[in-house]
């Protein structure tokens, strides 16, 4: 059912989604924390930028990324080499594209927690960092889990950005969604079905799992 080329595509997609999710958890958690601590115009602007990929067509993002990754762009100068058609370029695109799906659930979890647990921790003489790690993070763990799963699944399904900046290089930028497109275009529907069916099952499992997590989360706060 799976040939070597398909396995290469699947492994590369999992690597891309895994790395993107990891980076988003590392970058997104402090960002979500900062966004959840009060309201200001700066926060609203940053929050809007983070959420843009939800409504922006991926082709718009892909188009700007393609321009931004061009040979004479500031980004290319900064990185030292062009990022278009590279795995690193796809990671960058995916981090931007999937950011709201990771940051927003974590931010919501931090906001739902309220200021009280951190205040209590402070009266017990926990340092802010200590309180963040031992109180805030465990309390927000369902949000972190939701964010990680959503970010992973969203990256696996990414199409428009990859199409614009990928170049479909086997083993480097040829991922699942564009491969399905290729199989459909070349009338290899048997193979398309294998990958598309897999995506359907994965997406179903993700949403079902999320619903369960959310129910448990709400159940745990039953007293409110």
């Amino acid at each position: 059912m799976f040939d070597a080329a398909m396995i290469e595509v699947i492994l590369l997609t999992l690597k891309l989604a895994g790395l993107t999710t990891l980076l988003l958890l590392i970058l997104g958690t402090p960002l979500a924390w900062w966004l959840s601590r009060g309201r200001s115009l700066t926060r609203d602007v940053v929050s809007t930028i983070v959420s843009l990929p939800i409504v922006l067509p991926p082709t718009v993002l892909g188009f700007y990324l393609l321009i931004a990754m061009g040979p004479s762009s500031p980004l290319t100068t900064l990185v030292g080499r062009p990022l278009a058609f590279t795995f690193e370029g796809l990671v960058l695109g995916s981090v931007i594209y999937s950011m709201p799906f990771v940051v927003n659930p974590i931010r919501n979890a931090f906001e739902a927690m309220g200021p009280r647990p951190m205040e209590v921790a402070a009266t017990l003489r926990a340092s802010p960092w200590d309180a963040f790690v031992t109180v805030a993070l465990p309390l927000a763990s369902p949000g972190l889990l939701t964010g990680a799963i959503l970010g992973f699944a969203h990256t696996v399904g990414e199409f428009g950005v990859v199409l614009m900046i990928g170049g479909s290089i086997p083993g480097r930028t040829k991922v699942l969604s564009t491969t399905i497109f290729d199989y459909v275009e070349t009338l290899q529907w048997g193979r398309a079905h294998v990958l598309a069916g897999g995506m359907l099952i994965l997406s179903f499992a993700v949403i079902l799992f999320m619903t369960q997590v959310e129910r448990r989360l709400v159940g745990g706060r039953g007293g409110r």
């Binding site: 393609l66 278009a84 058609f85 497109f181």
Partner: peptide
């Protein structure tokens, strides 16, 4: 690889 000859041209036109 571009999806069509248009995209192949676009990759060159943008200098990528």
């Amino acid at each position: 690889e571009g999806k069509s000859i248009s995209q192949a041209q676009q990759f060159v036109a943008t200098g990528n």
